[in-house]
Simulated assay, not measured.
Amino acid sequence: MRLPPVLRQQAKSCAALGSPFMARLLTALADHWPAETPLGRLCEGWEDVDLGAGGASLPLRIAGGLHALVLQGADPELAAVYPPQTPTEADLIATVLAALERHAEFFADWMQTAPQTNEVRRAAVLIAAAHQIAARHPLPFTVSELGASGGLNLMFDRFALETRAGRLGPDAPALTLTPDWDGPFPVPAALDLATRRGVDLNPLAPRRPEDALRLSAYLWADQPHRLALTRAAMAAQPADGALVDRGDAIDWLAPRLESPTPGRLHLIYHTIAWQYFPAEVQARGRALIEAAGARATDTSPLAWLSMEHDGGKGAAVTLRLWPGDLTLPLGRADFHGRWVAWTAAALPPA
């Protein structure tokens, strides 16, 4: 069977990211995988070679579907073995397997869409970097997010970052992020996000109930703080429509870079998204951004901020700035924003 080893690998990843319930759930499914069921046959015949996190992410699709049933109140028996309850392993797996059978039609549909989250805690990096950029370039920002999902982090200027090292953000924030912080803390600067848009191949509109459910279901049931932050970020979304367009990230970005607005800094950023772009798309995007950087001026500077996996602990946080084409390592951050190790006390003067 193809899926049990992938379930076990995902269980280890979830344990490392602070979710013992997900580790327990996925391990139990691996040990008792119902191969001779519609869901079992669907997964066994899945066309992707990689069924895990680097490909189809079938374990997360299954877990997300189960959590969606709990959040909707669609299966009280299943909810009775979900956190904060602590059932025996026998009761947990028996109830989960029964739920998979009861909701076979639901899972046949749910499994067709890839997992999608919008990890709000990654905005800690955006807040810190934006304050440092604004201190160097006290200009209004045009913001473009690549791989924006539901666009929750496009509202980062309305979030507060509060740590033992210091605080950034508005006095009455939509939510407050509290990562473990190590290293120098940015000096507060005035943030003015004049315009903000994002792009995603499958954008979600958080004010639509079905999209809000999907964004919530892929959070892990024993991490209610993530769900609370996500709901607060959803509530901060503009009531007049979503901030994210559907499309290829680089095709979408190209016209936004053609005619820079004088007196504005254009901030392009992505958090754990670029690494999923095909190599050809990455190359095209890099060339496009570098060409725009070569045209940048002191009155219309360009900033490219990335938080991406590079093989080290957590994700590397890197900033490129034009004019001048400076590449500045800012630090590292946990993939889910639980900790930040910042190294940039301040950016070099413009």
Rank of each mutant, 00 (worst) to 15 (best):
S13D: 08
W339C: 06
D298K: 01
A316N: 14
R197S: 14
V125Y: 03
H137W: 12
G324I: 15
E290S: 10
R24E: 08
L60V: 06
A128N: 15
G312D: 13
A303F: 02
H225F: 07
L152T: 04
T86P: 00
R264V: 01
L97W: 00
L193C: 14
T27W: 02
D75P: 01
E119K: 15
P255N: 09
P4S: 07
F156K: 04
A217K: 14
G293T: 05
L92F: 07
E145S: 10
T297M: 12
L288D: 01
R164D: 15
A254F: 05
I268K: 09
T163H: 11
N202M: 11
P83G: 04
A236Q: 05
A346F: 07
A189H: 10
G183S: 11
T86W: 10
L29R: 04
A172P: 05
A333L: 05
N153L: 07
T195M: 09
L319D: 14
I93S: 04
D182L: 09
L100E: 15
A94T: 06
P260Y: 07
P301S: 03
G166T: 03
G54P: 01
H32R: 15
A53P: 05
H309N: 10
I62N: 11
L58A: 06
D325A: 08
L265P: 01
M111C: 02
P83W: 11
R264S: 04
G52T: 02
Q85I: 02
P84Q: 07
A291S: 15
R102F: 06
L126F: 13
L69K: 08
N118M: 08
G312A: 15
L146H: 10
L154H: 02
Q112V: 02
